[in-house]
Simulated assay, not measured.
Amino acid sequence: MIVWEVDMKAGNSRILLSKVLQAGALAIALIAFPLASVPVRAGLHVLVARNDIGGRIDRRAELLDHLRARGDRVEIRGHYCLSACTMYLGAEDVCIEPDNVYGFHCPSFWGLALNDASFDYWSRVVASYYPDGLRQWYMQVARHRVNGHYRVSGRELIGLGSQQCSD
């Protein structure tokens, strides 16, 4: 199994990937790559998102489509998963930790308001990656949050049906 660990912190435009091969206990050192270069293969990868502040919706959607197509697992760990990171909740095989905080807000262009058509389009793109109940709430409530985030705990999401990660 190969595990890619994604650790994004505020002010860091690159991610840290840890590639661990458990067949034969071979481990490869930590390497920094841009988010768009995360490679995945069917059934061999686990993407661990840790302290992810989000980013571009289109790039996250592309990555998620890739993960879904290959059936890879996503584990959302750490303390927070904000903005576009929350789209991972729609992965085919995803687990979360109860103490994580998830932050939801309106789509924007790096904090700038979108015109009505773009706002509606990008809201629908984001929502399309959420499970049904979360999708409805996002479209009715969270997509209208301009400043800050609506914060939802992993514990609340687990109560609504999300899978809890095992240690």
Rank of each mutant, 00 (worst) to 15 (best):
A36M: 07
H66W: 05
G54F: 07
V40Y: 02
D58C: 03
R77E: 10
G71Y: 05
A69S: 11
R70H: 15
Y88W: 09
E75D: 15
A25M: 10
R50T: 07
A32Y: 13
L47Q: 03
D72L: 00
L21A: 14
V74W: 00
H45L: 02
L35W: 13
A36K: 03
R73L: 13
H45R: 08
L67W: 01
L47M: 06
R68M: 15
I31H: 15
R59M: 08
A91R: 08
T86D: 03
A25G: 01
V48K: 03
R60T: 14
A91C: 01
L30G: 11
E92K: 07
A84S: 05
L35A: 10
L64Y: 07
E75C: 01
R68E: 00
L89S: 04
G78K: 01
N51P: 06
Q22I: 15
V74Y: 00
V40K: 01
A69H: 06
Y88D: 04
N51C: 02
I31F: 10
L26V: 15
L30E: 15
L67Q: 01
Q22K: 10
G78Q: 10
V48F: 09
Q22P: 13
R56M: 04
L30T: 14
A32E: 08
G24W: 08
V46R: 12
A49Q: 02
I76C: 04
T86H: 11
A25P: 12
G24T: 09
F33M: 03
K19G: 01
A84V: 00
E92Q: 13
A49M: 04
D72V: 01
V74E: 00
G54M: 10
G54W: 02
A69E: 15
S83M: 09
E62Q: 07
A69P: 02
M87H: 01
V46F: 04
V48N: 08
L44G: 13
A27D: 11
M87F: 07
I53T: 07
D58V: 05
H66D: 13
P34L: 07
L21Q: 15
P39Y: 14
A32K: 12
Y88T: 03
L21S: 12
